[in-house]
């Protein structure tokens, strides 16, 4: 039972982080708070993907003495998995693009309705 908790508690903390972001997206009424919640959500998913690449006893995915062209063989078990890192680099850049467009839309909404609260915007639209 103790081994089970030790080997899984990281995943539970990622789920808790993701749910904090999800609650901010659907429960808060301020639009900037919703965007902050979206950022938390995406960061939790990236954290989960990066953690699937971790290997016990593995080092960074940079090959030692790479320029020497030595005859030593490269063992896959000695380096951690590089593929999730590559995919998450793309995801971080897309995350910031999404953040920029969302903030531009929030500024446009503020110019039109002069408020950031969702319920006041809905009341003005009636």
């Amino acid at each position: 039972m103790f081994d089970f908790i030790v080997s899984k508690y990281n995943y539970w903390i990622y789920v808790i982080l993701m749910m904090i972001g999800f609650y901010a997206m659907i429960g808060k009424r301020n639009l900037v708070k919703k965007i902050i919640g979206m950022n938390l959500f995406q960061t939790a998913i990236i954290l989960f993907f990066v953690s699937t690449a971790a290997k016990r006893g593995g080092t960074l995915p940079i090959i030692e003495h790479g320029h020497d062209h030595g005859a030593h063989a490269i063992e896959a078990a000695a380096y951690i998995n590089p593929l999730p890192h590559v995919l998450m680099l793309t995801a971080i850049v897309v995350m910031v693009s999404t953040l920029g467009v969302a903030l531009a839309i929030v500024i446009a909404i503020y110019r039109r309705y002069n408020t950031l609260e969702e319920d006041e915007i809905l009341r003005q639209r009636k």
Binding site: I35, I36, S51, A53, I80, M88, I92, V93, L103
Partner: peptide, 27 residues
């Protein structure tokens, strides 16, 4: 700490740098 150094410095420059600047500008 997990060994993902490329992801770490991209996050430090892009998300903690540019993201914070964009949010401060919007606020």
């Amino acid at each position: 700490g997990m060994g993902a150094v490329d992801v770490a410095f991209t996050e430090a420059s892009v998300s903690a740098g540019i993201g914070t600047v964009l949010l401060i500008a919007a606020v």
